[in-house]
Amino acid sequence: MLGPDGRPIAADDDDDFLDNGDAGEARLPRGLTLRALVPNAITSAALCAGLTGIRFAINGDWQRSVLAVILAGMLDGIDGRVARLMKAQSRFGAELDSLADSLSFGVAPALILYLWSLQQMPRFGWFASLAFAVCCALRLARFNARIDLEEQPHKSAGFLTGVPAPVGAGLAFLPLYLWIASGRDEFRNPIFIAIWVAGIAFLMISNMATLSWTSMRPRRSVRLGLIAFVGLTIAALLTEPWLTLVGISALYLISVPVGVYRYARIKRQRAAARRPAVPIAS
């Protein structure tokens, strides 16, 4: 076989130049196509953003540290959609995404909150940070372990299991949002922060059903209002970002019991559908 320069290529090097079925598209080593680089590059950018948040926290720049993690969450929200749009899904991308999420939404928030408040009580505060990082990793490991399972009751009904890792990171920062918005040191109390972080860690690994985008189906009568609400929310984020983040976090926390209630109703409906009909006596 001849290479691009006209020279013969050794047999063990052929895989680096195999065509993957698309005309003119070469395959990179180990089966990673050029097309797959785009979503994986976005995932890498999310990882870099999350870890950069730690650097900002070390320098005491709390606002930029939080914004870096939020940017990582935004990038994490589009990499999978880009992969599906470009038909570039791969097991490599799924594994990279989980590893990046563990660092960006587990390790980074845990260290940021520790440097901001929890280090005031080093032992207990450090354990709270560890609990958050470990629970985030456990959640992602559980997600990967269930990818190939056909029977997933929550997923089949359009729900998620527990709080997603990016959302958990955003909720963990709620006291930090309040502190930046108000400047009151009460929101920086390490005991309160430790309890809060432990609670969010529990929500991430819990088995409760939480709402997902697919389970939200607004009625036609409110869709225009919902579009206007999203636009106003973006405007609020640009003008009053920290209070708006507080409001978004509060709305999500309110949605948690709503998701549990809606899934319980669907579960009862499924059980009733599976129950054999009782014959009517003549």
Rank of each mutant, 00 (worst) to 15 (best):
I193G: 01
S221F: 13
T233P: 03
R184F: 12
S215R: 04
S212H: 05
L237G: 04
F173E: 03
Y177W: 13
G183W: 07
M204N: 08
I180V: 08
M204F: 02
I200G: 03
A194L: 08
N207A: 08
G231K: 08
A198W: 10
L211G: 07
L232W: 15
A235F: 13
L174E: 04
D185R: 14
S249L: 03
R184S: 15
M208G: 09
Y177T: 00
V197E: 14
G231D: 10
A198R: 10
P166D: 06
L243H: 09
F187Y: 12
R219L: 13
I180Y: 04
V163G: 02
L245P: 02
I195M: 15
L226D: 02
F229H: 14
I195Q: 08
G247I: 09
L243G: 10
T210F: 04
L232F: 15
P175T: 01
S206C: 05
P164L: 09
L176M: 11
N189M: 00
W242A: 02
V222C: 12
I193H: 06
R188D: 14
E186M: 14
R188P: 00
L243T: 12
S215Q: 05
G199Y: 09
G199M: 15
Y177I: 03
P241K: 02
R220I: 10
F187H: 07
I200Y: 10
R184G: 04
L203P: 05
A201G: 02
R219Y: 05
N189I: 00
A250C: 14
F187N: 03
A181G: 04
G183Y: 06
V230H: 15
L176Y: 06
F229N: 14
L174H: 03
G199D: 01
F229R: 14
S182L: 09
T239H: 13
M216Y: 11
L176D: 06
L251Q: 10
V246T: 13
S215N: 07
S215M: 02
S212L: 02
I180H: 07
G168A: 13
P166R: 08
L211A: 11
S249T: 02
A250Y: 04
F202A: 15
T214L: 07
R220N: 14
F229P: 04
A198Q: 10
I248V: 14
A201Y: 06
S206H: 00
R217S: 12
M204K: 05
R219F: 08
G225F: 10
D185M: 12
T239P: 06
